[in-house]
Simulated assay, not measured.
Amino acid sequence: MNGQKRNQIKPGDKVDIVLKKDQQTGELTRGVVKDLLTKSANHPHGIKVRLEDGQVGRVKHIVK
């Protein structure tokens, strides 16, 4: 699943995100969601989240 729909992501999910500094390269960072930061139901570049380790980025994949 991609990370464009807010209702598909919840705290505790394992996800791959793109950090702001990695947007040019598209390098992914894996972690566990702590908070959802995007308020809208959808976002074309991915829902912005904060991981448990404090990193912030947009979800590209939800790991099942």
Results as ranks from 00 to 15, higher is better:
N7Q: 07
K34L: 12
K48L: 08
G54R: 11
D13Q: 06
V56P: 06
R30Y: 10
K14V: 14
S40M: 01
N7T: 03
V15G: 02
H43L: 05
K64S: 15
I47N: 00
S40W: 03
E27D: 01
L28A: 07
Q23N: 05
P44G: 04
T38E: 01
I62E: 12
V63F: 13
G54Q: 07
N42G: 05
G54T: 07
K39L: 04
Q24L: 10
P11E: 07
K48S: 11
K10L: 04
E52V: 09
D22R: 01
L37S: 00
S40E: 03
R50A: 10
P44N: 12
V56Y: 00
I62L: 15
P44Q: 15
L28V: 13
Q8D: 13
L19T: 00
Q24E: 06
V63Y: 14
L28R: 08
G3C: 08
G3T: 10
I62D: 12
V33Q: 03
K39C: 03
H45M: 09
P44A: 04
T38Y: 08
Q4K: 13
K14N: 12
I9Q: 05
D35K: 05
H61A: 15
R6Q: 10
L37A: 06
T25R: 12
L19W: 01
V15M: 05
P11R: 00
D22C: 06
R58K: 14
R50P: 04
G12L: 09
D53C: 14
G31Y: 00
Q8Y: 09
K64I: 14
L28M: 10
D13F: 03
K5M: 06
G12K: 13
